[in-house]
Amino acid sequence: MILGSLLSDLSAYYSDNFGYLMRLFFDHLLMSIYGVLFAAIVGIPLGILIARYGKLSGTVITLANIIQTVPALAMLAILMLGMGLGQNTVIFTVFLYALLPILKNTYSGIKSVDPNITDAGKAMGMTRNQVLRMIELPLSLSVIIGGLRIALVVAIGVVAIGSFIGAPTLSDIIIRGTNATDGTVFIIAGALPIALIAVIIDIALRIIERKLDPTVSDNDAPEDVQSVN
């Protein structure tokens, strides 16, 4: 009885506010993607670099680990003091949190390439860049995509907190629900699409990841190199 009325309320809310909801949905998604994209632009080359020059790897990964330990809400608040309210601060926060999984997976992906194969490549007369382009990157691509997947799922969660500093996200609706008396419908209306984005991204990237893994046939499940949260 209660569930039935809840569902009808929910569908009524979705049909009345469809445009508003879609706008929030895309804002939410885009902020996550931008943050992860910037993190990838920095993290992937940095990961390659530290895989090549081993001495840097400890420092860089520790630094990224430290960032990861700061609670997202606290990070937002600190950055807000410097960068002000709004979307840019949220994107930058996402960038910081996405950096570790991308960096670490790129690093371990390249490190896990069989040294005999890179040795054979070098001995056949590949330059260093050719070894990277023709051997290391293709063989670690699935692990790198795995890093992007984890980063995106983390990003969806981080962006949700962005509502507190005035960025338009799907949790605007949730916050409205928690402030109102009997706001269950609002809370669910906001939470469902957030969960949906995260699950869809996770599944889609997992499929791509598996497709790209040259060492795994289609039947075996790939192992996660690292997972965060």
Binding site: N116, I117, A120, G121, M124, G125, M126, I135, L139, P214
Partner: peptide
């Protein structure tokens, strides 16, 4: 060294074919 290695064949115990 790169040109030198291209002019000399090399076979290793671990075979080292590129799996992809």
């Amino acid at each position: 060294p790169v040109e030198l290695r291209r002019s000399i064949g090399y076979v290793i115990q671990q075979i080292g074919l590129l799996p992809h």
